[in-house]
Write a protein that binds this DNA or RNA. Structure first.
Length: 263
DNA sequence: CGTATCCTGACC
DNA sequence: GGTCAGGATACG
């Protein structure tokens, strides 16, 4: 599920389960996660206390009393399950962080592509991330300079986390639809005015999705809102009625309306 | 720049 | 049995 809105909500789940608590056990169940967080490193988390949990882009960050930081990136299919003592683990449990009150934060990830990394005190690497989509620093002026030298399509550029942090395949497509911009447009060929529209489009879809995520996350039913273009190939554009098209850009699906999204 | 790669499941 | 999947990086 994870793009910025889903990760934002996941971070609140993680915070509720771990903030102020001391870690009493860490289990890394899948070799894929063990590569990034070897058993001996995982063990070193025991006895450390979680002082804060926040999010930057799609990364959830557990700040620890020791000064270290545990970063969790869900990639494609990661999610948290909160388990009480004695609860059975979910089918795709990949890692388990147990707190001193007996509650466990379980990384539930069918594809096992999630990445856990522990950064030692003082060695936390610079985030190679652009501004948050909801940050004031993310504006048309920033976009203009960030895209000035990029000849890739605007859709591809928006997936680059250095341009804007947290935007993924779904909301990049949705934002371009909001802004009426053809996803194939070269990134450096958008006028300042259209960049301004794009900034607004990104903020709109992210805000809407954050609200949606907190309301429906974990519910059995899918959000009723759904998407305007994503995963709607052949269905009518909600704005102009022309059928939504699907193309491939940089190996990933892009959905858009050729009727009302212009280059 | 495109493509492969990490994994596993769902779906045709 | 092949294709695709909401991410990111490494490689040619």
């Amino acid at each position: 599920m994870p793009e910025l809105p889903e990760v934002e909500y996941a971070a609140t789940v993680a915070r509720a389960a771990s903030h102020g608590r001391t870690i009493t056990s860490v289990r890394v169940l899948h070799a894929s996660q063990r590569r990034h967080l070897p058993a001996r490193v995982a063990r070193s988390l025991i006895g450390d206390r979680v002082t804060a949990v926040d999010r930057r882009g799609k990364v959830q960050r557990f700040h620890l009393a020791s000064g270290r930081r545990l970063d969790v990136h869900f990639r494609m299919t990661g999610d948290w399950t909160v388990a009480r003592e004695g609860d059975p683990l979910p089918r795709f449990a990949r890692a388990v962080l147990t707190m001193d009150d007996g509650t466990s934060l379980v990384l539930d990830d069918p594809r096992a592509l999630s990445v856990l990394t522990l950064h030692a005190t003082g060695t936390t690497p610079e985030d190679r991330l652009g501004p948050e989509a909801t940050d004031r620093a993310f504006d048309a002026r920033w976009l203009r300079q960030a895209l000035a030298t990029r000849r890739v399509s605007i859709k591809q550029a928006l997936l680059d986390q250095r341009v804007v942090a947290g935007l993924g395949n779904i909301y990049a497509a949705e934002a371009l639809w909001e802004a009426r911009i053809d996803p194939r447009t070269p990134a450096n060929r958008l006028s300042p005015k259209r960049l301004q529209t794009l900034v607004r489009g990104i903020r709109t879809v992210i805000r809407r999705a954050v609200r949606n995520a907190s309301r429906y996350y974990g519910a059995e039913r899918e959000s009723p809102a759904r998407f305007k273009v994503y995963d709607r190939e052949g269905l009518p554009c909600p704005r102009c009625g022309r059928p939504i098209r699907r193309i491939t850009q940089a190996g990933r699906s892009t959905y858009f309306c050729a009727g009302c999204q212009k280059s």
